[in-house]
Design a protein around this nucleic acid. Structure first.
Lengths: 237, 237
DNA sequence: GAGTACTAATGTCTGCACAGATCGGCGTCA
DNA sequence: TGACGCCGATCTGTGCAGACATTAGTACTC
């Protein structure tokens, strides 16, 4: 519902930058962008402001709008994540997100077991049971999976952990769209989810952490091939 | 440089929202903001767009600019983090960031030991040695500390880990500004940093992880009191 | 209660003036 | 002659003011 033109301009510029079509150091002029995108100054300027807040560009007087190098991009900006998952940088983004999950989700489970209100454990139990009941429908299974991990992240009571939930969702849905998930969800994975739910409900932090850790290990095994060839970013210093 | 008028507007609105002066659900009109901030329409609009991309507000026709509830804020937006660290939400933000560090940094150390180029290990060794040599100057010591952890995060080769470095820096500098760090840096902490550097240089992932984990434990002990009373966010579901 | 006209607010466009950073010319000095 | 530094010309983003377009609540009609 929000402004269509603004989003269109934003999307056009953002995807081209993330795809590398507009490389770091490339300089654009606001006036050219107007005619190129077929929109007015105000639209271009607002889009550029948003890109600037995401660290993708920097606009300076007398020179123009410069595309910044990747290390300055905000890797947590939802727009940047979406664009990268649909670009050639997909492998690197997927690996980054998965490593983040591996680091965070076990601790989130531990914290949830420590501090989360009771209904979190109940809800997790509920979701895990539905996952078991959902036999064939891979799509439904994956929706439940997304929800399960979102509840754990939110249940940790840590806002930054909770804030990862849409990124995690995009990873999981993206995985399925590429047919990377086995049609038959592992029986073992389901059991692990049930175990996590129970550990959180019964307030057993160490057990929750370790079980979630096993889920993460399985996740890595499933997705590992995806980024097999992608090089690690050589963080400039 | 600070003549960026829209940055002032952004700061004014952002801090007031994060401070809770403008509560969730509060509705503002662009026209009122113009007169209130003493700026023109375009400035207000660009500031609002940036706030919108951070999830702090949503502007809809016929209604106005509505302040969104905290769960929709992007907890990774640098602006949001800065504002929260200077607001009453400081305790919660500090706890979130520290828990994030505890989850991420051990894994970052492990990944760095696995994949980082040699000069990362050398540089870490260098920094840790300087930390030992720096006796009294707490300020200098803390700068080195910030740099050490930034190099580890970047050395992991994970862009999302690397992206945490300025947030970590703000936590550490903020801690010192509040006099939360002992004047005498622990001899033990210095040894641990040296050990991490060595583990990474010698490509011992497990050791790097475990040693970094000990540093994180010490960090929690130092900072724990800061958020003693702050409630955990009850993630709405 | 469903449909419709109204209206208030954001969205978009355009012309103008200002600010400040870069570039190039000019003069000075070695 | 050549290098350096000052200084104005010029270019581009920034900010302002006012217009029109669009759309989503709202109230009114039937």
């Amino acid at each position: 519902m929000p402004s269509r033109l603004h989003q269109k301009a934003l999307e056009s510029l953002g995807t081209r930058i993330v795809d590398g079509v507009l490389p770091a150091g490339h300089i654009m002029l606001a006036e050219d962008l107007e005619s190129e995108l077929g929109v007015s100054r105000s639209v271009v300027r607002e889009a550029v402001r948003v890109l600037q807040s995401a660290g993708l560009v920097q606009s300076t007087k007398r020179v123009g709008i410069k595309v910044l190098p990747r290390p300055t991009w905000n890797p947590y900006d939802p727009l940047v994540i979406r664009w990268r998952l649909r670009s050639s940088g997909r492998g690197a983004q997927l690996r980054s997100l998965t490593e983040m999950r591996v680091a965070v989700e076990p601790m989130a489970a531990e914290l949830a077991a420590d501090h989360a209100p009771e209904w979190v454990g109940e809800q997790l139990h509920d979701i895990a049971n539905k996952m078991r009941a959902t036999g064939q429908d891979a799509r439904r299974f994956q929706q439940l999976d997304v929800r399960f991990h979102a509840v754990v992240l939110a249940g940790s009571g840590n806002e930054m952990f909770a804030g990862l939930h849409d990124a995690v969702a995009e990873v999981l849905t993206g995985r399925q769209e590429m047919g990377l998930i086995p049609a038959h969800p592992h029986e073992e994975a389901i059991e692990l989810h049930l175990d996590v739910a129970e550990a959180i409900a019964l307030r057993r932090p160490a057990e929750a952490r370790e079980t979630m850790n096993e889920i993460m290990r399985a996740t890595i095994d499933e997705i590992h091939q995806e980024w097999a060839g992608t090089p690690r970013s050589d963080a400039g210093f």
